[in-house]
Every structure is written in structure tokens, then in C-alpha cells.
Nucleic acid binder design. Structure first.
Lengths: 147, 147
DNA sequence: GGAAGTAGGCACCTGAAGGTGCGTAACGCC
DNA sequence: GGCGTTACGCACCTTCAGGTGCCTACTTCC
């Protein structure tokens, strides 16, 4: 019983740390935006749609239809688009409104919360555009180190 | 051949979009920080180590030893810690210095690039702390909608 | 009358992330 | 002399995010 200290203490610390991570807001946010299509959808909904790709956002928030998003984010599967939109709606980042036209159409729009989140994403984008080249250069140097 | 338009065009668009994503700096950055332990390591290296958990960073950059990180980030496996540190070193975000003491000790330290990245992470942290409660509230409301 | 668009649901499958466990080689502690 | 520490490497195993394909009803275009 007295010799359990080392391993047991580490196990205990791990449980505590895992519990901490499970309710850490920052971690939750990272998990949220780490979803492959979340950022793309946010960017698309914030753009004016005239751009070829979602991340080149320069317009202002505008409601978009499901099919429109599907076309803009050409790489997304129907399943993932639906899933992503549902989860974003669930979190109150976008709104989903059904318009009972001949074939039902559905429009999605950023909420204020979604817009504010997109703002911080712009911050990330800024860093990425100014520093990512350095990172890639470092990576190349590292890989050729022992070539 | 003439009837291939619809499906084929979509497939073509998908290929182009995937290619775009593959070299998009923002996406690369998101993939980078989405790694489970990357942000934790950055935060830990930026803190003074006196705090119980890595994300509660308030100190200034300080070199840390492998075992020290392992203890601070109690939940991380040795494999993942090593892997994470290697990839961060590869990207020039941290430096790895081997000190030939009796049992070799290794210290890791943030580079300027790593520090600047951590700054934008602080931005994310700020949003998370102020808005994540709203998100969780929305989520709860959504889930109890049809209960 | 067949194809395409409207917004998805459902089931299956795979690749990769991440965890666990074991080994190392030299040394200090009790 | 057996266990602990130091900083990993390697192999196996599980899990699950995400992709693919097939389905719906209804309508309109060619």
C-alpha cells in the first residue's frame, strides 16, 4: 500500500487533468473549430458568395441555402454538410429557417454569436497568412537536416 | 458523354476545392492547433509552471524539461508528448536542447514564432471564456426542445 | 419519361489519431 | 540489488471522424 505512491499519484493526476480538460472552455472551443467543415461554413456564410472559395471572405453576413453552401464548399459530402449545419445550429452559431416553397428550401444564417466567432477566426487567418510560410520553411529545413 | 455534365462537374469542383484546401494556410494552421496536445504544450511553455494546469497561463516563456511537461500535462501519454514536441520543433515553434548531464536532460523552449502563435491562441481563449457559456446554454436549449 | 434539383436520412467502411504496454542504458538511492 | 528517474522508440490495439452509396417525395425542365 505504501509503495503505490509513484504510479498511483500519476494516475490520479491524469484523472484530474482529464476532468479539467473535459470542462475547459478553451478546449471545447478548439474541439468545435477543429471540425473539418465548421470554419468553412462560417466563412461561407460570412462571405458574399461571389468568391470562389469560402475562406476568401470579404463580404458581409448573408443567409444561404443548403444547396448554395453545398455548391460553394464543393468538397463537402451531403452528410457532413448536414451534420455540420445541425451542430452549428445546436450551438446557436447559425439559424435554420425552413421556407415552405414548392420544394421546401432551407436557409442558414450566422447569428451574432456566430459572427463574433468568425471574427476571432479572422485573427487566426491573419497569423496563418503572415507566418505559415515561415513554419513551412522551418519544416522543410528540418526534414532536409539529415538528408 | 454529353449527359455527364451534372455529376462530373461536381466531381471536378470537388477536386479543385480539395486542392485549394490542401494548400490553404488557414487550414494548415487549424490542422496544426487542432492536435490534442499542441495548445496545451504551447500554454505550458508560456506559463511559469506554478499553475496547476497549462491553460491558465499568466507567466512568461520559460524553458521546460520533458519530465516537467509530462508532469504538468498529467493526461498526456509519453508517446504523444514526444510526438507533439517533435512536430512543434519541426515547425520551428519550439527549440529542443539536449543537456549532457548524468542522465541526459532535454529542455524545450518557445521560439518567437511559437510565442506569436500563442498570442493568437490567447484570443481564442478570450472568446471561449466569454461566449462558451452561451454556446452551452444554446446547446442545452436545443436538446430539451423536443424532450 | 428520364434527368436534375429540393434537403436531407441511414448504413456500411476505412484510415488515421491516439492510447497502452514494453524495452533501453546509464546512474542514484536506500 | 531492486526500484526510480531521464527521454524517448516501437508495436499493437481500439475508436471514431468522416466518406461513400443508396434511399425518399415532389416538381420542373428538356
Amino acid at each position: 500500500m505504501t509503495t503505490t505512491t509513484a504510479a498511483q499519484k500519476k494516475a490520479q493526476a491524469k484523472v484530474e487533468y482529464d476532468a479539467f480538460l473535459a470542462q475547459c472552455p478553451s478546449r471545447k472551443l478548439i474541439d468545435r473549430i477543429a471540425d473539418k467543415w465548421v470554419t468553412l461554413v462560417l466563412a461561407a456564410l460570412n462571405s458574399d458568395g461571389s468568391h470562389r472559395f469560402g475562406l476568401d471572405c470579404a463580404g458581409e453576413p448573408r443567409p444561404m441555402r443548403y444547396s448554395e453552401l453545398s455548391r460553394l464548399l464543393a468538397g463537402v459530402s451531403q452528410k457532413m454538410l448536414t451534420q455540420t449545419l445541425r451542430s452549428l445550429e445546436r450551438d446557436g452559431l447559425i439559424t435554420r429557417t425552413v421556407v415552405p416553397t414548392v420544394p421546401v428550401t432551407v436557409t442558414y444564417e450566422l447569428t451574432d454569436l456566430g459572427i463574433s466567432l468568425h471574427h476571432v477566426m479572422r485573427g487566426l487567418k491573419g497569423w496563418a497568412e503572415t507566418h505559415m510560410d515561415d513554419v513551412l520553411a522551418n519544416r522543410a529545413t528540418y526534414d532536409n537536416r539529415d538528408a
